[in-house]
């Protein structure tokens, strides 16, 4: 864990956004928590990083961050990807909060595309960066229509889509951003996490907040909420499995990155969650290619 930065950026409010904007975002968050899975419109601001780089997640994090928080930022499960480095540094500079790469030390975790392998606790908040918050968007491009479908709980389109996958491919061909039903009511996009991570959302002790800056939406899954991945009785939801463990730490029940080693088909598979992998290696676990 690196200590709170001594010299935060001057000339900006704590965590960049002004207090009025933070209050507006917190109100949207409260509404989102009160109506799990419902997309709450909010007046997203233009941030100093581009749309698509996590402006929604950054605004949610800015609104909930306090001086004593410890922040972790991951992209693709890793703390050292350039955009994760950039966002972590942004909050280090504008809020002066302590940052960490350890999942268990963090009170706020901002993520793009993964949920940490280490189970989360009641004392943590997971903030997701969301590109397209509307799970029905690729089935119905119009916002006026999709809002109505949600209001009526009319999710037949989605089931037809999943059925057509099975008809065409023999499997549901959605491998990430796999739609979920939250608290028995709203169908929600879990952000483009691989469906491997969907079960971690169910009954999770941590608060899960989702921010979409470009699309100006916030939604939430409160702690201990039922999150069910959509499926059929004869085609139950199933997560990806890998036919080998992590080459570095030997973990078998985690999501792996495929790394191309040469141009002759050489491949290795390593943990996508870098903190989880490092912690396991520190604890003495070793995979086949560990040094």
């Amino acid at each position: 864990m690196s200590a709170a930065s001594a010299l935060p950026e001057t000339g900006y409010n704590f965590a960049y956004l002004d207090e009025g904007t933070k209050r507006m975002i917190r109100r949207a968050i409260l509404k989102a928590v009160a109506v799990p899975g419902y997309q709450v419109p909010f007046a997203a601001r233009e941030m100093p990083m581009p749309y698509g780089w996590g402006t929604g997640g950054v605004q949610v994090t800015a609104a909930i961050l306090g001086a004593s928080d410890v922040l972790k930022v991951i992209d693709q499960g890793a703390d050292d990807t350039t955009n994760a480095v950039s966002i972590r540094r942004f909050f280090g500079r504008t809020a002066g909060v302590a940052t960490t790469t350890r999942t268990c030390e963090a009170s706020v975790i901002q993520t793009r595309h993964r949920i940490p392998e280490t189970p989360l606790t009641e004392d943590q908040i997971l903030v997701y960066q969301v590109p397209i918050p509307e799970p029905l968007r690729f089935l119905e491009p119009r916002e006026t229509e999709t809002r109505q479908l949600h209001a009526l709980g009319e999710y037949g389109l989605m089931h037809v889509k999943l059925y057509e996958d099975i008809a065409r491919h023999g499997h549901i061909a959605t491998t990430y951003a796999y739609p979920v039903e939250v608290a028995g009511r709203y169908v929600m996009d879990p952000s483009p996490t691989p469906k491997f991570d969907n079960p971690k959302m169910d009954d999770c002790p941590a608060l899960q907040l989702f921010g979409a800056g470009r699309e100006k939406r916030i939604y939430a899954v409160p702690p201990y909420t039922r999150v069910r991945s959509l499926d059929f009785e004869d085609h139950p939801f199933r997560v990806q499995s890998f036919d080998r463990p992590c080459a570095l730490c030997g973990a078998a029940d985690v999501y792996l990155d495929e790394v191309v080693l040469d141009d002759a088909g050489g491949r290795m598979f390593v943990c996508s969650d870098t903190d989880h992998c490092e912690a396991r290696r520190a604890a003495g676990h070793a995979g086949e290619q560990a040094a």
């Binding site: 581009p50 749309y51 698509g52 780089w53 402006t55 992209d75 693709q76 499960g77 990807t81 955009n83 793009r112 595309h113 993964r114 590109p131 499997h171 061909a173 491998t175 990430y176 951003a177 483009p192 996490t193 691989p194 469906k195 491997f196 470009r214 990806q240 890998f242 999501y255 792996l256 990155d257 495929e258 996508s272």
Partner: peptide, 22 residues
């Protein structure tokens, strides 16, 4: 527009891995 188009250059390893597997 530019943000969402250009964000495609950010890493998408884990989603691509999911597609590869399928």
């Amino acid at each position: 527009a530019t943000g969402f188009v250009e964000h495609l250059k950010l890493p998408h390893y884990v989603d691509f891995q999911a597609e590869l597997e399928l």
